[in-house]
């Protein structure tokens, strides 16, 4: 995270370094102190309006590479994408020229209502066709590649026929989209559904991985005694997730890595500390790759 890595030009790619998910409580501090963070990511929908909020993002963009991470496009909606929503994303992409644009493998819009969560999809041929169609429509409208993030889930659909990792690899193959590999989500879902997280990681095409997400999760015991992990982005990255991240780096090589924290957003210094932990592992991967080369 040298100073030069912060001087971005409009076309600069996100460096394979640690970024931080920028949330409202830190806007002022970040703009006043310009901390040594390699890049920032924001939630696309929070910046649909104008005024000081938009001005803040313009100022952030002036100093750092930017990633726009959507939470509301609902790529998995059976009814089709909300054209107005997609248009607003397109305008933001046009105005901010972000280095990365991403969305989720999930659904949240039905019959004109927005169910404010990233809801799971059944892993079926029909769902794969629907998501492929919507990723293609999005990439055509934005005139660029997007990254699609693997979900975290607690529910399993009995009629799913495709393992999630195969679904995602096939999505990337058919649409040319990149992948946002959320390592915490893989850990959470693998733990909830009894999957092998290493099998999941190994099934993803390394060349398609454009970004990695890291976050904390909660552990809850249900009435039945079953232990569930919940992707609440409300704590530090768990040690098991750091270990899985190291495996991901061995498989994929160094990739831009984001620290996310959305529930009970802590002091910015905590996020910097988490970003340093990711940076150290990225550096170790780079050294290992250099030795191997």
């Amino acid at each position: 995270m040298s100073d030069s890595s912060r001087k971005s030009s409009m076309s600069s790619p996100i460096p394979a370094a640690a970024g931080i998910g920028l949330r409202f409580p830190h806007h002022r501090q970040v703009l006043e102190s310009l901390p040594p963070v390699a890049w920032f990511e924001v939630h696309t929908e929070n910046f649909f309006g104008g005024g000081s909020v938009r001005q803040t993002l313009l100022n952030v963009r002036r100093h750092y590479p930017l990633s726009l991470h959507g939470v509301g496009l609902s790529l998995g909606s059976a009814e089709g994408l909300d054209a107005q929503h997609l248009q607003r994303v397109a305008e933001l992409v046009r105005d901010f020229e972000p280095s990365l644009v991403s969305e989720h493998l999930s659904w949240s819009v039905l019959d004109g209502e927005y169910l404010a969560d990233l809801l799971p999809l059944p892993m079926t041929d029909e769902a794969l066709q629907v998501v492929c169609r919507h990723v293609e429509q999005t990439q055509e409208t934005l005139r660029r590649q997007i990254l699609v993030e693997n979900p975290s889930s607690y529910l399993h659909f009995a009629h799913s026929t495709i393992p999630e990792w195969e679904f995602i690899a096939e999505l990337a193959r058919r649409t040319g989209c990149g992948l946002l590999c959320d390592v915490n989500n893989i850990y959470v879902s693998a733990s909830n559904h009894g999957w092998d997280a290493k099998v999941y990681l190994s099934a993803l095409p390394a060349e398609a991985i454009g970004e990695i997400h890291l976050a904390g999760h909660a552990v809850r015991t249900l009435g039945s005694g079953r232990v569930i992990r919940i992707d609440d982005h409300g704590s530090r990255v768990a040690p098991e997730v750091w270990a899985l991240y190291e495996q991901a780096l061995r498989l994929f090589g160094p990739k831009p890595t984001l620290i996310e924290w959305d529930t009970g957003v802590p002091a910015f210094e905590i996020l910097l500390d988490e970003a340093r932990s990711a940076s150290g592992r990225l550096q170790a991967t780079r050294s290992a790759h250099a030795c191997a080369a």
Binding site: A78, L110, P122, G223, S224
Partner: peptide, 30 residues
């Protein structure tokens, strides 16, 4: 196999109108 739209509609109604008599307590907890 239920169509995707059908799956999403039934999930939506389950989310906002939980069944009065719960046959599947751990499903409802999820």
């Amino acid at each position: 196999m239920p169509a995707l739209l059908e799956t999403q509609r039934s999930m939506r109604s389950r989310l906002f109108a939980p069944p009065a008599e719960d046959r599947d307590a751990s499903g409802e907890e999820l």
